[in-house]
Design a protein around this nucleic acid. Sequence first.
DNA 1: TGAATCGTTCAGAAAAAAATGAATGATTTG
DNA 2: CAAATCATTCATTTTTTTCTGAACGATTCA
Lengths: 189, 189
Amino acid sequence: MAEGSQDSVAPALSPWEQALIDFFMQVSQFLGLPKSVGQIFGLLFASEQPLSLDDIAERLQISRGSTSTGLNYLRRFDAVRQTFVLGDRREFYQAETDTSRIAQSFLADQVDPDIESWGERLRFGRQMLELAGPLAGAKPEFTAARLAVLDQWHGDIAGAVKLMHEHFRRPPSGGGQPDSSTGEKHARG
Amino acid sequence: MAEGSQDSVAPALSPWEQALIDFFMQVSQFLGLPKSVGQIFGLLFASEQPLSLDDIAERLQISRGSTSTGLNYLRRFDAVRQTFVLGDRREFYQAETDTSRIAQSFLADQVDPDIESWGERLRFGRQMLELAGPLAGAKPEFTAARLAVLDQWHGDIAGAVKLMHEHFRRPPSGGGQPDSSTGEKHARG
DNA sequence: TGAATCGTTCAGAAAAAAATGAATGATTTG
DNA sequence: CAAATCATTCATTTTTTTCTGAACGATTCA
């Protein structure tokens, strides 16, 4: 229903909202993201209607700054859908429910760059060592063996990441139910 | 008895050591672990001989407390091998080079518990909602749809984790080179 | 048994990360 | 065009994490 109460009143989170916020807060911290990101996503996920930045900040009692930053994260991962409400200049957000989509973006933005950077670093280090030769301070055979291990490390991890990409490329086992009940049209005049 | 250098001189890290320490420090931070953990592993990885806790603390110029804590982490993940040197009461460590082994332990210790905890939390939340029914403050069809999405989330992620487990269960593509040059035998237990 | 050596633990210090909120720039409305 | 609305940015404050180092218990050695 339409919110009867006006400003300054903290609308008190329902248990439903609270549970989802807590849940995604944990997920967020597991992924090494600020907890506010999880909070925001949780609130959006719990909400049937799209919410504006101010809605979110007010409901969660966090600053607009944090909210803005958090929404940026979520946008980066395509974890949030931006919807436009007629007659309202503000931007409204709702939670993306497609896991694959989010996971792919997350991998691309948060994981791939690191893996790639490690690869570069390894290549560089190897070059340096090959140039410096035995001067580096350790036995050549030993360093050679270590370099081999490093390559294995990198290849192994990169392989795991590739596997994740593939896993999230295709829709999961459940069979794609297009989430009918969420498809409410809200853009009203 | 066999104490060669008892002075306070920090032996100055070689470029080889420095490079590896930096590298694993980055990996460590990526994984959400204290950077000292990465430093310690890097130093061990760079060193042909096993090192004692004091060796590590001294070379890295970090406190014994941090070193002890860091070594605990590494032991948890089987990222470190404990070796016993004859005539020395202290414990010596060297880096485990088998990626699979480390990855498996890491998954088991750092990832699996979270996934499981999420699962519990979801089951619990679902129960609560089913009991509370429409009282929870949102339309039943909507909450039902959301719960379905949550299940998909969890299953999807759990699937990814299982995939990782499988990936690291078997030795990686490279064909098992038994790491001959590292296989130095010193008093084992 | 007593002195010495080891490794761990934990309260406090230091460092790092995140949140805040006012200033900023951009866009729209009257 | 000026006023108003909106989202972002950034210097500062707050919170969280990590490191430190001395105290402690355990073990070994003489």
